[in-house]
Design a protein around this nucleic acid. Structure first.
Lengths: 202, 202
DNA sequence: TTCCCTGTTATACGGTTGTATAACAAGAGA
DNA sequence: TCTCTTGTTATACAACCGTATAACAGGGAA
């Protein structure tokens, strides 16, 4: 005979804290199980919470994913900015630091890539995700253009920033996918070399 | 009252043809619906075939996806090679053609990107997909190194090929995601400029 | 201590998933 | 024309999906 299970104990958390826990759990699940394996139940299990609670804080799983994108995007941008601030205060060192931060943790990370791939793959079908993508990449590009301008003032760095972003993204992708035919150090060398080729000393 | 539906007419196809049709349908579904919306039923509906048939040709949906990756990868490599052969027969023109073919159809294509993202996202969890990825990228890199060597013989082009691949991948990604802040023509200009910076006249 | 609001859980629902299986019929070979 | 192989369909199944709802209980307010 089946004894009736007592209702599980639980803790009432402040709204902000619970929302953040769900966002973290969403990112972790996307990283570990991929888009395919990410469900309401899986996310809530990771967060240690009953499945129904998700809809108490979010209109649905789509909104949670979008909010997770925004949060992860901000984390990445913050990590990049931290790297810049930790570098020597010369324009060139700051620029190199910004470019090469993508080749070391926490940015070069298989989990982060898995999460990011999930966001990319939603860009086609979810307009909100597409808008977030545009915002995040625009901010990234503007930051890079500013650093380029500090290093070589006056000229137009739009295309240079676009190309450097593409290079870094491509190297980051291969590194994070695993089994890359080059090391993080080599990626750093490449970024520095290409920067020097494009921006000879003024 | 429900009249009993007559069994649908069907056509017996050669094995190769049916397998190919299912692979095409799988790619189309991944492109149109994303990983999330790609199911056995969806693929078979796209192929105009009953759901059970998939398992007559593949051990399951995972094997079909892997075979689709191999097929699409071969198509991409073929398109790149076609671009090279259509170019002027000078080493430089062939090299540029290889690099910039990624910025025009059929390679710069939102559908292809969606499919590719699905493959990438499976790399973590599916060892077969990971192995395919390594093979496809290794072949791509070797081809590029050969073209580089024809243009500037003698030196070691490993890192150059890696960097050019990363640059092209990054530009291709942004172009295919849509709303890129640059045009395909600008991407072509960038690839040519960076190539010139790395490989000054011999 | 008691009350009461509401964050949280448990459960239910219809729909979809991947796979298994048996019945059917297309179409080649005799 | 007939037979037989087998490619194909139809159906069934348990497990899972996202969401809706009502009952419960944590814990601050009084």
């Amino acid at each position: 005979m089946q004894a009736k299970e007592p209702r599980a104990q639980f803790h009432r958390a402040p709204a902000d804290e619970r929302r953040l826990a769900l966002i973290d759990a969403c990112a972790a699940t996307l990283a570990r199980k991929g888009v395919h394996g990410t469900s309401v139940r899986e996310i809530c299990a990771t967060a240690g919470v009953s499945p129904g609670l998700l809809r108490h804080y979010f209109s649905g799983i789509d909104e949670l994913v979008a909010d997770t994108y925004a949060a992860i995007g901000a984390q990445v941008q913050a990590a990049l900015n931290d790297a810049v601030e930790a570098a020597d205060p010369t324009p060139e060192a700051r620029l190199i630091a910004y470019l090469t931060a993508s080749f070391a943790p926490p940015i070069a990370d298989a989990d982060l890539l898995s999460t990011w791939l999930a966001f990319w793959s939603l860009t086609r079908t979810d307009a909100k995700i597409a808008r977030l993508h545009d915002e995040i990449y625009a901010e990234n590009r503007i930051t890079l253009e500013r650093l380029l301008d500090a290093h070589a003032p006056g000229s137009d760095h739009r295309l240079t920033a676009i190309a450097l972003t593409a290079l870094v993204d491509g190297l980051w992708l291969e590194l994070s996918l695993g089994n890359a035919p080059f090391s993080p150090d080599e990626a750093t060398v490449l970024a520095a070399r290409w920067l020097a080729a494009l921006l000879p000393r003024i």
